[in-house]
Design a protein around this nucleic acid. Structure first.
Lengths: 213, 213
DNA sequence: CATCGTTGTTTAATATACTGAACATCATGC
DNA sequence: GCATGATGTTCAGTATATTAAACAACGATG
């Protein structure tokens, strides 16, 4: 397949030593410039200095500097050593070329999205979950609260821990009453239902992957 | 900080080729042996000879031979040239065969796997998580408990809610103290650390997708 | 101000990657 | 038998990657 292109490419082979222009005046004998760019980005993302990464990986800081400036193309062997200090696999290093800055963000504290079902109260971790792989919530069921039978069409898994109170969990045709410290885990496509049969409030922490809404 | 350690470390630096400890005797100092293996496999898969691949990629056949015997670790730049003759991207070359085996099953109640870090106690939801997409746990940190800096090489996301007590969460170079009702969410590849700085036990519910261990 | 302790960059020396050309084998054909 | 042409390997020479140590610049001490 497509060897006309290949033949054309051969014509452009830089012959070598004779025509070497490199070290003369300017700078860049560089190839694969994305390598240095990505390394620098990753290093910053992890809050490491060149020397700190050097110490962790057993590579000299000068080498890391040269790589990041694309003044040299590291051997696979050395690059692997460098990445071991982050740490990151070669596969991830090269695969995430497009994945440069998207989802991986950190946040904490109480950026919660509170939703209300009339009876049941949800506090979702993070007010927007675009691009995330999980949806984590606390769910509070007053006495008598009932989700009714819930069905999801898309593929997901769901689980959680009971924090306080008791609640009846029904999945498929199995039914159990769970209390503090108990947990559940099931395929979201199965019909499921949560009911607080007791006379005290029930709270649980749940996680769903991928997010359901 | 701590340069006595650094000085000590310098003493142990393997000076160079002389002190090579790696392989036995005959074999050269090869690292990343999978590179040569994978290249040879791919070349055969495409029905190419070393010389044919050399011609297409503009790299000498001798070099390809050396790489495939793991007698040298090619520069990223050269490896890219070689792969362009197949053709194949660096990302595809390094992307390992990650088998995704989905088998979402249902279970409930208290089939917990309790683990112990010496200080920190984990209660994992479900005693086996083969094929599951999430790992859900309660984690209990006694006063003073500290995970140390934790890093993961594989791609994952992680989040949780604080149930009781307070805990310091550090992700990348950001740090926050969280209390009951607070939560966190981050990319697991970022270095992270949990420390209980207070004098009362801290409990939280966490979820990780995909499971980390 | 001087003196650390960081940071990233650069430079001479050296180890090693890389080339070009040879070597070694195994086929095929005459 | 000696060719010719394919294969993969090895070798000397050269270009380049890599090291160790210096340099330059910024902040925080005191």
């Amino acid at each position: 397949m497509a060897n006309a292109v290949d033949q054309a490419a051969q014509l452009t082979q830089p012959k070598k030593g004779v025509a070497l222009n490199i070290s003369s005046d300017a700078s860049p004998p560089s190839e694969t410039p994305f390598v240095g760019d990505r390394l620098r980005e990753l290093r910053h993302l992890h809050g490491l200095s060149q020397r700190e990464l050097a110490r962790r990986s057993g590579v000299t800081n000068g080498m890391i500097s040269l790589i990041e400036q694309n003044k040299t193309s590291p051997s696979v062997s050395l690059l692997k050593k460098v990445l071991s200090g982050i740490p990151l696999s070669l596969a991830d290093f090269f695969s995430a070329v497009e994945d440069v800055t998207p989802s991986p963000v950190f946040f904490a504290a109480q950026q919660m999205k509170v939703m209300d079902n009339g009876a049941i109260r949800f506090r979702q971790l993070g007010d927007q979950l675009g691009g995330r792989s999980m949806q984590i919530m606390t769910e509070t069921y007053p006495p008598g609260a009932d989700t009714g039978e819930t069905m999801l069409t898309h593929e997901a898994e769901e689980g959680g821990f009971i924090i306080r109170g008791r609640i009846e969990v029904t999945v498929g045709h199995q039914s159990t009453v769970l209390g503090p410290g108990d947990g559940y885990y099931f395929d979201s496509r199965l019909p499921h239902r949560f009911r607080n049969l007791g006379d005290e409030e029930c709270e649980l922490v749940s996680a769903c992957s991928p997010p359901s809404f």
